[in-house]
Amino acid sequence: MTSHAAHIKEKAANATLGFWLYLMTDIMIFASLFATFVILRDGTNGGPSGQELFNLEFVMAETFLLLVSSFTCGLAYLAIKHGQKRRTLVLLGTTITLGIGFLSLELYEFGELYLAGHDWTHSAFLSAFFTLVGTHGLHILIGIIWAIALGDYISKRGTTPDAVRKFSLFALFWHFLDLVWIFIFTVVYLLGAIS
């Protein structure tokens, strides 16, 4: 291997490790928000609790969209590794569409709460809810923008090793958001609906 190729390879390994570490820091951000949510969930200030507000079926639909998008993202990663450019782009496009669908549902849910007069200024519980779920939504938005830029890059440059490396980081990010959502689904919605 030439020293240049070795250099590229080393950079790729570095990027992956660094990205894992970044995800760890992001977990700490979410952990802080989760901890705050759990502490403040009873601070409803006389207003409604999660049990009264959440519609589990609706949230199931959101969850379904996100899980499927994670699946298509995984397929896209397989495709790019096999150098199948068209297939990669189609699957990435599907992932983006599903992501946008998820985000739209979330915004719809937020909008309904807002219009019903249950916005974030009314209680600590609602502040913590909007912030935790909203932070995840913001990540999804960033993921969508990233995916679009990535699609543009791949359509121009093809399935080069650089593109595969960039894609692998995106895939990590997207799966990570899926995982965080499972926690949100459990801690915020499921436990909220039960208690």
């Binding site: 403040l40 601070g43 974030w120 009314h122 600590a124 502040s127 909007f130």
Partner: peptide, 9 residues
Amino acid sequence: MHFFTSDGG
């Protein structure tokens, strides 16, 4: 919001 305020929970 009402994370750390003394009112609103």
